[in-house]
Write a protein that binds this DNA or RNA. Structure first.
Lengths: 156, 156
DNA sequence: CTACTTGCAAATGCTTTGCAGGAGA
DNA sequence: TCTCCTGCAAAGCATTTGCAAGTAG
């Protein structure tokens, strides 16, 4: 059920979306998509800088704005200190985040189809009375990642 | 099932928590809690400034840091541009957010107990294999609020 | 009097923008 | 060639901090 999309296909889709916005899929933009693709978790500007050292910060920010504008990238505000970026879910797959409150790491988890249909149903029931028209949802779980949980256990 | 907590009781609880951190419940801090209490939705620094004009920005930020440190306030990073703050859920009640992607408004919705137990069960199943120890979760729904949905409908 | 508070002004750090040169179609 | 792209340096803006004076216990 997991709709896998190949990296090649992702680049193709990103290019199409950029084109629709009169934008080109240049080396810098591709490098950023490459980083987001390979990282497997939301990337901060520092991750991007590390993964694409040839792209200056200011250009990276500009690219990210463009990529968001055409719906290829989504911003995830984690803690407020800085912004994280990830590929749009329709380019990868719908997933949720596990945020470790100790080390700050974010892990992606892909829910089962069953899981998602239940959530979708609940979201509908949650919004029914308010007149709110739901488009998407995000379920983030805060807690302790395996490593930090162990560390805490040990220090007791 | 909805555990209502009176404003008075909230102040009391906040004071206790501050005390435990060797902090005093001063006029400035009280003013901020008052704003968060009366606003009924996550407050930006501008909301706080408007609701508590006597508290300078820098002090407000400092208070918010303190209030977060003692677990009375929680930061909600909405869009990444700036931070929103709300009272800790154990001072009010657990709720979720409806974010309008058009006007940016955030509305709180309180889920039923049934709803929550299902979510909790799903979170457990989601984290079971990863060794992640879940502490809390947030389910945010993006979409169009009633007003914006209507506006969009009309413009077709 | 000792420790926590506050306000102001200055500093910080992420992010955006102006501008001038470069490149794709 | 016209439009989009890129880099650098400078600017913006939310948030933090140093410091000196204020206040509660």
């Amino acid at each position: 059920m997991t709709t896998e999309i190949s990296p090649l296909r992702v680049h193709e889709l990103v290019e199409i979306r950029l084109r629709q916005g009169q934008l080109r899929y240049t080396k810098g933009r591709r490098a950023i998509v490459e980083v987001l693709l390979s990282l497997g978790r939301p990337a901060g500007i520092s991750d991007i800088e590390r993964g694409a050292p040839d792209v200056p910060r200011s250009s990276a920010y500009r690219h990210l704005v463009d990529l968001q504008a055409v719906g290829a990238v989504r911003a995830v505000s984690a803690n407020g200190d800085f912004t994280l970026f990830e590929l749009s879910e329709d380019l990868t797959e719908h997933h949720h985040h596990l945020l470790c409150v100790v080390c700050g790491n974010i892990t992606d988890v892909t829910p089962s189809a069953d899981f998602e249909s239940v959530i979708a149903e609940m979201v509908r029931s949650l919004t029914r009375e308010t007149g709110f028209d739901p488009v998407s949802h995000s379920l983030d779980v805060s807690g302790h990642c395996a490593a930090c949980a162990e560390r805490i256990g040990n220090s007791l």
